[in-house]
Design a protein around this nucleic acid. Structure first.
Lengths: 153, 153
DNA sequence: GCAATATACGTCGTATGCGACGTATCGTAT
DNA sequence: ATACGATACGTCGCATACGACGTATATTGC
């Protein structure tokens, strides 16, 4: 085995470990939501979509998907379910018949704007609270950098 | 607005940004797999499971799920599909009728052992290759720490 | 020895999550 | 004006992904 091979193997092990960690992170982030914020009956992605729609009423589906880093088909499905619950509204753009604009339902706008900041104190924020300030910044930077590296490919 | 409120808000923003980054990371990691490693016809989780099964033939389903950070029901489904393709085998433990042990199919054992290291050079490893060595370690550490913080809750 | 409990899995219902495909609409070049 | 490509969505098929529930098998308590 050459020196280069060992290097490659070491990087592979690092990557494999990071993959395991990232799966575990995803798992840990999704889990408590079901129980902790059960009152709101919103899953993590639904929460993210609601936040975005409240922040930008009338957002196009495509931009919504990009904002939450989801394929438009996935975003469409989430909007479907939120619409079925009456928390959101789809309206075709009068100036461009192709785009459907997403609005928060009038009834929930105020409620969501108030409740969301409190509700979004999910497992991630709880975990971050346990870290030192420097650690928090470091992890945020690392995650951002990793995203950057992955997306520039 | 008190000083504590601002602090909480800042942490919320940090958490929200990290959530976006983590979604984007997940998305970027899953995507090229479909095309790049299309020959192997294996998805990311299937790859992770194959790796684990080849590394530990006869592993119990529960331990398999834990190793890849997935619920046992999810692991069961993945094993179902791999079994249907003949890449894996389920055998009930003769000493304990409850456990089903997972074995790599005899035909693929050698092949997988050789092919996997090359195939697992997925988007993450590509991205990591673009980073400086120090950055790599830093990101790995940060991700590991984040996992630790999330799981200790 | 047997009832109560615990464990390991399989299965189901639901929610993501994606690419591929079809459709309606818009912009544009002829 | 009309054909043609581009764009935005909706929908489908499939693969995760989870908790809840049921079932079969061990283990424990008495």
């Amino acid at each position: 085995m050459t020196k280069g091979d060992r290097k490659t193997a070491r990087r592979g092990a690092l990557a494999a470990q990071m993959e395991r960690d990232l799966r575990a992170i995803r798992r840990a982030m999704g889990r408590p939501l079901e129980s902790e914020i059960a009152r709101s009956e919103l899953t993590v992605p639904q929460m993210a979509v609601m936040r975005e729609v409240v922040a930008s009423p009338g957002i196009r589906l495509k931009d919504l998907g990009r904002a939450v880093s989801l394929a438009h088909s996935t975003a469409s499905g989430i909007v479907d379910r939120l619409e079925k619950r009456g928390m959101i509204e789809r309206r075709t753009d009068p100036e461009d018949g192709r785009v459907s604009r997403i609005y928060p339902a009038a009834v929930v706008t105020g409620f969501v704007r108030d409740a969301l900041p409190a509700l979004q104190a999910g497992p991630l924020q709880t975990a971050l609270a346990r870290a030192r300030a420097g650690e928090r910044e470091e992890m945020a930077r690392a995650v951002g950098r990793l995203r950057e590296l992955l997306e520039q490919g």
